[in-house]
């Protein structure tokens, strides 16, 4: 069976236009063999959730540097849940202070990558935790003895 690549939506919600990080991460994920869909700038939570559903992604990476993460990120998580995508991995990258992380995780975020994060760590985290990474890709690889997350 041909290996299906991990699909990830890189999303840029809120009004800030700082897309350096989002584009670097998108390119690093592509270089690591994933299929990346980049939403472009200033997407509403509704647009992001709809794109995640339409593109049938395994993970959503949200890049936000404006300080609006506490308002915007939980709303995206809620919309994903409402459309039955609770097992979609949600990651956040950007300027998020430590204090805000527990509430974001409570809302459904799997990991927050703060300033200085290394793209390789992001790649590895997604490989280890994305639903399809767990159930399909790992089977038949050297990691096959590891138990999978949702099989």
């Amino acid at each position: 069976m041909p290996e299906r690549k991990i699909r990830i939506l890189v999303a840029k919600p809120g009004l800030d236009g700082h897309d350096r990080g989002a584009k670097i991460v998108a390119r690093a994920l592509r270089d690591a063999g994933m299929e990346v869909i980049y939403t472009g700038l200033r997407q509403t939570p509704e647009q992001i959730a709809t794109a995640a559903l339409q593109e049938d992604v395994d993970a959503v990476g949200i890049s936000i540097l404006s300080g609006a993460h506490n308002t915007i990120v939980p709303r995206i998580c809620e919309l994903l849940r409402q459309q039955g995508m609770e097992d979609t991995l949600v990651l956040v990258g950007g300027i998020v202070p430590d204090e805000d992380i527990p509430a974001l995780k409570q809302a459904g975020v799997a990991a927050v990558f703060q300033p200085g994060a290394v793209t390789q760590d992001i790649v590895e985290f997604i490989r280890a935790h994305a639903k399809r990474a767990a159930s399909e890709l790992r089977g038949g690889t050297v990691d096959s003895q590891q138990s999978t997350v949702d099989s």
Partner: peptide, 18 residues
Amino acid sequence: DLPTLMGYDSDHTLAEGE
């Protein structure tokens, strides 16, 4: 702030959280 930079008033829906 970002709403001002983008030409939205503080009471616009896209200004929420910003």
